[in-house]
Amino acid sequence: MSLMTVESGLSPWKIATAKLKRNKLAMFGLFVISILVALAILAPVITPYERDRIDMFKIYESPTSEHKLGMDEMGRDVLTRLIYGARISISVGIVSTIIAVVIGVILGAVAGYSGSIVDSIIMRIVDVFMCFPFFLIAIVIAGILGPSIINLMLISGLLNWPSLTRIVRAEVLSLKHCEYIEAAKALGLNARKIIFKHIIPNTLAPIIVYATLGIARGILIEAGLSFLGLGVEQPVPSWGNMLSAAQNFTTLTTYWWVWIPPGFMVLVTVLSINFLGDGLRDALDPKIIQ
């Protein structure tokens, strides 16, 4: 991206930002995400009740003016837990993506730049990882390590880095032979400097897009694994484990306030991130001319 000739004299980043701002869906997504992140951070301040406080007399109570989203199966305020749940779901998404990005970028850059044997080995490892059926590994690892938030982040991160490696490697391969890099090599810069200071910054575009979408993926994975009982443990609320509490059929049909809000939140959050990520992809893609 940085290597395309720029006619208007603006930096590529400024062009991208302008493009992004014009994308209504992406801006909407960004707006929603900001609100959600703010809610998550401010949770202790804005929530009306204590997160884990149980009131045995109010189990499954429907929404009232005091408890706007009613009470859950243990007599706890749903709205409070919903807001705290944002913390978990969003942080799982972010941390797992960071793990995947760090591993993926380093391996991808090294593979692309070094070529031959190192490349082959790394790509073989990628092949092995990519054909692991995701849920099988996730369930096995959850079986070994036990359900917990940290394990969830690890599992998610460790299983998502391969595709990023491929993307980065492809970018690096195409950059390797251009003049810019040849010049750096001629100047005698060592491989590590070249990779970290020159190549990686130029592959930022797909990384940013991937990372954004990866957060969405992470949130969906948290929902799925917690639903299976392999993720966030009680009494910590996450949107995923709030959804799993609705596995009882009566809850599904009658106590809608227990499960529809978290399901809806997952949908809205992931949707917003996808809007934004898609917008970023469009904005940073040199091929689409608006």
């Binding site: 869906l25 969405a216 969906l220 929902a223 799925g224 639903f227 959804l243 609705a246 599904l252 049909t253 399901g263 997952v266 949908l267 992931v270 949707l271 996808n274 809007f275 898609d278």
Partner: peptide
């Protein structure tokens, strides 16, 4: 179409499945 497809890739599939069972089956 765009909005629909975005929703489709954002919704957790088990959530969708349970909604379908609740409304269309039950």
């Amino acid at each position: 179409v765009t909005v629909f497809s975005f929703i489709g890739i954002s919704v957790p599939i088990f959530f969708l499945a349970m909604l379908l069972i609740k409304f269309l089956s039950f």
